[in-house]
């Protein structure tokens, strides 16, 4: 079973705040679990994997102190309990090699951080309606 949660690993508090604000404007917004880096996110997830429910979706920034988004992604995808958790990489880089690398590590999607808040809102909207709603229908394999 999934909790109605989105995990966001993002070291930039402003970007996190924008994401939260954009999320809140949805009709029935999911709860945002914000982790400041990959390590924090991994700890949070190991808790939920044992006792609680997994979030519906993880959104990871690439450049983060301690553990980068790609590192975390690799760990999630190599762990049986979390490998089916949809992971979207969200970065300010639109470098083709960054995008290619993210998919190589097993990302389910890659988003370039929009410059405009309005664009972010639209993006969050579509994430919500596509990734969260569609995943609700999928059977969960633990």
């Amino acid at each position: 079973m999934y909790a109605n949660q989105i995990l966001l690993a993002e070291d930039d508090s402003t970007d996190a705040e924008f994401f939260q604000r954009a999320l809140r404007r949805l009709d029935s917004p999911p709860e945002l679990v914000w982790c400041k880096n990959g390590l924090e996110a991994l700890e949070g997830l190991s808790d939920v994997t044992n006792s609680k429910l997994l979030p519906r979706l993880a959104i990871l920034d690439i450049k983060m102190p301690g553990m980068s988004g790609l590192e975390l992604l690799a760990k999630l995808k190599s762990d049986e309990r979390t490998k089916n958790l949809p992971v979207i990489i969200m970065s300010s880089s639109d470098e083709p090699q960054d995008i290619a690398m993210a998919y190589d590590y097993g990302a389910n999607g890659y988003l370039v951080k929009p410059n405009r808040f309005q664009d972010l809102r639209e993006l969050v909207n579509s994430i919500n309606s596509f990734w969260i709603k569609t995943n609700r229908l999928r059977p969960m394999v633990m």
Binding site: D12, T14, D15, F18, R21, S92, S93, K113, P114, N115, R116, F117, Q118, L120
Partner: peptide, 17 residues
Amino acid sequence: SHDLRAPLRAINGYTEI
């Protein structure tokens, strides 16, 4: 230029909000 984008997004975002 990558690092400059973050504060720029902040300015833009807060202005829109």
